[in-house]
Design a protein around this nucleic acid. Structure first.
Length: 440
RNA sequence: GGAACGAUGGCAGAGCGGCCAAAUGCAUCCGCCUUGAAAGCGGAAGGGUUCACGCCCCGGGGGUUCAAAUCCCUCUCGUUCCGCCA
């Protein structure tokens, strides 16, 4: 949520910043919000004035009663009672207008960082690094889609996953399952020097999913469990951001850094039919997320650091990758500034987004009410939040299968994963760990 | 799932319907004392909103009343006991 006070102090500036994201409906919403805010403040002033009078009169009643002047007290009570009517009317109107305002504010996106590149969409995202590790050309045996290779090796069994749970669910088996877990372990180990490992809940309340910005606007993208009013998290960002919701942190606690491996659940409502094969787009997947709650002046450096950390893990796998910055027209609603890491998958011939690292300024923290206190300052300030995927399993997994496919159809396991693979260095068709192959 | 009790400031913990933003203790900060510290003594200090006056905040919501931390209803959460259970 953006700061309402900006609508009063610099409406033109808000307009200019949001215009960079493209679209004009937002600007109308901003104007509407500004009008509602003005009205709300008028009502508040009137209501508070009435309350002030009632409070005064009530005190008088007490004093008159004590003095034994009950007739005078009755008169004052009558006056106060009448004022109470007006107060109720104004209070009801206040509630109504403030809820309207809130609903609009919740849907207004964050203002982009001044340095975020302008652009209309994905095609305008500037390349900031790479491609790294890109060979002059790929061998023919690498030009096989991972779902073919992996199914043949018996490490991917999407047919049975679909039987169990429906379309766009995947299942890894044998060394494929081991490697999925190994990837998470690698990402966790790579960041354990600076981030506290957390194992948060994966079902959260409506309030929690609203704090990070998924609700109310993107309800269709999330799985809900209506009977208990819970939602399945689309990313560990959701519970980790809300970990300190409603709290006032000490400046010495900041930046607070946390990481978590969780399942992530996405309905992919808008992308039915796209990327349905293999593991490019799935309803449930594992991801290691890193996250920081910080003071504003700490955030820019943290963003750089988190990009470097995500890159380091990806780079260590030895696959071609590049880093792009997300332009204003392609940024998510809550984002202030954002970078993606993409890995090249030769079998699909696609650059796959495997990590996204973002700075949210105070947008999420205001929704979540995460504040901090400076030593000498009076009052509190809204914190900044940042987060990023240290590693998202399915696409990295897929890219490994394609990049490291050998001429004989086996897959070489990247060296950094060897310690986590129980001695395996290659995934062979006749690997004894494969108990049963898929029903092809 | 059933029953009982509970929810107040950073923590602990008082609080007759009006004099309660709220005692007291601990912790914190600033002085004094001291070579320095501890102890002792004195003092300061909640959050939100507002240009300000003011208004709001005692788990959330609703109600009663001229007036609610205080009375009533309800929800949530917690503790204990019972049941069930990886």
């Amino acid at each position: 949520m953006i700061d309402v006070r900006l609508l009063r102090s610099d409406l033109a500036g808000v307009h200019a910043a949001l215009a960079r994201r493209g679209g004009t409906e937002v600007l109308d919403q901003v104007d509407l919000a500004a009008r509602l805010d003005q009205r709300l403040r008028d009502i508040t002033a009137q209501r508070d004035d009435i309350r002030h009078q009632v409070n005064d009169l009530s005190k008088q009643v007490g004093q008159l009663r004590k003095a034994g002047e009950s007739a005078a007290a009755e008169g004052v009570m009558a006056t106060s009672r009448d004022l109470g009517e007006t107060e109720r009317t104004l209070a009801a109107e206040h509630l109504d207008v403030s809820e309207q305002l809130r609903q609009i504010l919740l849907r207004i996106p964050n203002l982009p960082h001044p340095d975020a590149p302008d652009g209309a969409g994905e095609a305008d995202n500037p390349l900031v690094k790479g491609p790294v590790n890109m060979p002059a050309e790929f061998a023919e045996h690498q030009r096989v889609p991972h779902w073919e290779t992996a199914t043949a090796l018996g490490i991917l069994d999407n047919e049975r996953a679909t039987k169990i749970s429906g379309a766009m669910f995947t299942m890894q088996r044998g060394l494929g399952a081991t490697m999925a877990r190994a990837l998470c372990q690698l990402a966790l180990d790579n960041n354990a020097d600076a981030f506290e490992e957390v194992r948060p809940p994966t079902l959260v309340t409506t309030a929690t999913l609203t704090a990070t910005g998924q609700l109310p606007k993107f309800a269709d993208d999330a799985y809900s469990i209506e009977r208990d009013d819970l939602w399945a998290i689309p990313t560990a960002e959701v519970p980790l951001t809300s970990l300190y919701a409603g709290e006032v942190l000490d400046d010495t606690d900041l930046p607070a850094r946390m990481m978590a491996q969780t399942s992530c659940f996405r309905r992919e409502a808008g992308s039915a039919g796209r990327d349905t094969r293999g593991m490019l787009r799935t309803h449930e997947f594992d991801k290691v997320e890193i996250l920081a709650v910080a003071m504003p002046e700490q955030a820019a450096v943290l963003l750089d650091e988190m990009v470097v950390r995500a890159e380091r893990t990806i780079a260590s796998l030895g696959m071609p990758y590049r880093i792009v910055e997300i332009c204003t027209g392609d940024m998510g609603q809550s984002h202030y500034r954002s970078f993606d890491i993409e890995v090249y998958a030769p079998g699909c011939d696609k650059w796959l987004e495997v990590s996204s690292i973002s700075w949210f300024s105070d947008y999420q923290a205001r929704r979540a009410d995460i504040r901090f206190r400076r030593p000498l300052a009076r009052g509190t300030e809204i914190a900044h939040t940042l987060n990023g995927s240290a590693l998202a399993v399915p696409r990295v997994w897929a890219a490994i299968i394609e990049n490291f496919r050998q001429p004989d159809g086996s897959v070489a396991i990247p060296r950094v994963l060897h310690p986590y693979m129980r001695g395996a260095t290659v995934i062979q068709p006749k690997d004894p760990a494969q108990a049963m192959t898929g029903p092809t």
